Amino acid sequence: MSRTMVAGNWKMNTSPAEGARLIQEVMEKVGTPATRVVFGVPALQLMQAQELVAGHTNYAIAAQNMHQETSGAYTGEISAGMLSEVGIEYVILGHSERRDYAGEDDDLINLKIQRALEAGLRPIYCCGEKLDIREAGNQELVVGKQVEQALYSLDPEQIEKIVIAYEPVWAIGTGRTASKEQAQDMHAYIRRMIANQFGADVAQNLTILYGGSVKPNNAVELFSQPDVDGGLVGGASLDAENFAAIVNAIGG
């Protein structure tokens, strides 16, 4: 099975009507994709989006977040079980914006990952370093700690359901992009970490995405790297033509 994927993270953008049009336009432009295509839509649109992709090969929907508890007095929150019951397949966890704005750390993210797996969801786990860390040459130390704290408590069968997205924080929404060499080096490092903890076979089948100002004009170069299996796309995923071009930049 191909380990490739292109996922869009819409963040807090699009009305339900706009979101429906965007999904339909992407599917019209791409047709049946050679890779897995995931739309990470706002919570209000999850059920609508799931209905739009149901029955279409290689398309799926992701929630952008979920709560770590299964139920309770958590006003405004959504549980993993709720997402699973309406057919959502993926959930984005550990995004740098959740870390910065909501104070989430990898212990909390680890708990969310466990709850997601228990409910049958597939987590897209985000990790990455800030600019000062990169400039100091400590990116592997920081990303390695994130991966260890969030994922090492899982077993190999659980890791097989995880997608990792490496997102250098200094490249998210800034227009800056890691070079193909920087992306490849970090992806290879993450894959080695997984191999050392869970075995070479698990690591070889693991999907590792690059996120950070992915655009049509750099997607082919990034996706051609041996350990870069696709992208978690932010701003460019809000434009059907751009996102379709990114999807078509990757082979199955």
Rank of each mutant, 00 (worst) to 15 (best):
N13P: 12
A195M: 04
E129P: 02
M1I: 11
G199W: 01
V53H: 02
K112P: 00
Q45M: 15
A219S: 05
R122S: 13
C127D: 12
A17Q: 05
N218L: 04
L117Q: 09
V228L: 13
R115T: 12
G235S: 03
E135H: 13
K11I: 04
D239H: 07
D105Q: 01
G55E: 04
E69K: 15
K130L: 09
N58T: 02
I61G: 05
V26D: 05
L46K: 08
S96G: 00
S96E: 00
D132T: 08
I190D: 02
G235F: 00
M1A: 15
A80D: 15
G212H: 09
S84H: 15
V202A: 00
L131E: 15
A7P: 07
I124P: 04
S71Y: 08
V6Q: 02
W10C: 02
D106E: 11
P42V: 14
A34M: 05
P216C: 01
Q149A: 13
T14I: 09
Q45R: 02
T174C: 02
K215P: 01
I113M: 03
V220R: 10
D100P: 02
D105K: 03
L111R: 13
G120S: 03
A102F: 07
E221R: 10
W170V: 04
L222R: 12
L46I: 14
A119T: 14
R122P: 07
M1C: 14
P16N: 05
I194Y: 11
A240L: 00
D239Q: 05
L222A: 14
Q149Y: 10
Y125N: 12
L93S: 06
A62M: 01
T57K: 12
